[in-house]
Simulated assay, not measured.
Amino acid sequence: MDQSTSVTELNGVPMTNTPHLLAEDRPEFERILDEALRDGSIVESLRAPGPHLNSEQLRTKTLLAADTVAAAAASEYEHYTGLRANLRQSDDSSVSAGGLSTRLHSEDGAGFFPVLTVLTPILAWAAAAVLLLIGYSLRATDPELALGKAVVTAGWISIAVGIAALSVGIIGLLLTALRDGSAMPYGQDRQLSDDVAEARLAWHTALRDRAILPYLHGNLDSEPALSPQPATRPTPPDLLSPGYSTASYSSPGFTSPGVEGLTDQEGRQPRAAEFSSPGYSPPGFTNPDEG
């Protein structure tokens, strides 16, 4: 037998073993499992009298065997994951091309014409203000002076040029916005996206009808799955159990000082206290008559 196509059994039926479910698809498997547990046939079987697994035990056992259960919908899953990979590759290529195109457009757009459309109105209106100020000043001095009339006319022409340049810039911005808005965003292949959505729905249907529901029905009367047991901690000894003895403690040995509370110079051997009473002698008095 070819190593790439090993065989496994699901409810006694041999079938091709597919690669494990991807981590991103396991939440979908769990969601479809919850829907299958709410199916009418499963609910009726769970309510039937007799020894059988409950809903939570069935759910745990199916999740632990997710790769084996999902093998019944192998062809739909392979088709779905293949289309999804193609869509992601197409999106990545389109985003890369779009980034390059945007960069080239930005480099080309920063040319003479855009700068001219921005600077022309500003320069034209600044020149118009200066020309009109000078022209009307000259006309105020001498109304018949031809130079004054020419300067005023030049000022009004500058205003018109600025308005025309501003209008051209606004029209260019509108055309650019309309062009960008009508273009399809990068990375969106409508047909391929529809194919991926259809393949995903087909996998969900096959996973529910051909994989999960038969597995649930086939394992109602089976043994429950053994969940991993947590590591046990050592229990403390029972103080009330027979044969248990508490630890013995003894107080440190102390020796009291000697009878009189004194020791020798080294502080080890008690010795008797020695006292000597002070000597007193009565004062000598003489009779004053004898004196």
Rank of each mutant, 00 (worst) to 15 (best):
L104Y: 04
R233L: 14
A183T: 15
I157H: 13
D91W: 14
P51I: 10
E260L: 10
V196S: 07
G155C: 10
L123K: 13
P288N: 03
L147N: 05
N287M: 11
S101D: 11
V118N: 07
L58C: 06
A110T: 01
N287H: 13
W125V: 07
S94E: 07
I32Y: 00
S251I: 08
V7Y: 04
A23H: 09
Y280K: 11
G258M: 11
Q269T: 13
K149D: 07
A154R: 10
N54G: 11
F29K: 03
S6T: 11
E56P: 00
L37E: 09
L178H: 09
P121N: 03
Y77P: 02
R103E: 07
S101K: 15
S256C: 04
I171T: 12
D142M: 05
S167E: 00
S158C: 15
K61T: 02
R38I: 03
R190I: 11
T8P: 01
L147I: 10
A225M: 05
D92W: 11
L138M: 15
T8Y: 01
A199E: 01
Q269L: 12
L213E: 04
L10T: 00
D39W: 04
V259S: 07
A126T: 14
P288C: 03
T153I: 06
D91Q: 15
Q191C: 06
A165S: 10
T62L: 14
L173Q: 05
E24Y: 04
S106Y: 03
T141S: 15
L226Y: 01
H217Y: 04
S276K: 14
W156F: 12
S222Q: 03
R38E: 14
A70T: 05
Y80E: 08
S227H: 03
T176C: 03
L104K: 13
N86V: 12
G172Q: 12
R268A: 02
L207C: 06
L83S: 04
A65T: 00
D209K: 09
A146P: 14
A146H: 09
T255I: 05
L192A: 08
S158L: 08
D238L: 13
P51C: 07
E76R: 07
V151M: 14
E144V: 12
P237L: 13
H52E: 12
A126I: 06
L192K: 13
D180N: 13
Q269F: 09
L10I: 03
G155P: 12
S227T: 06
L201P: 00
L145W: 10
G82Q: 13
R139S: 12
G98M: 02
D195I: 09
A154T: 02
L37A: 07
A66M: 06
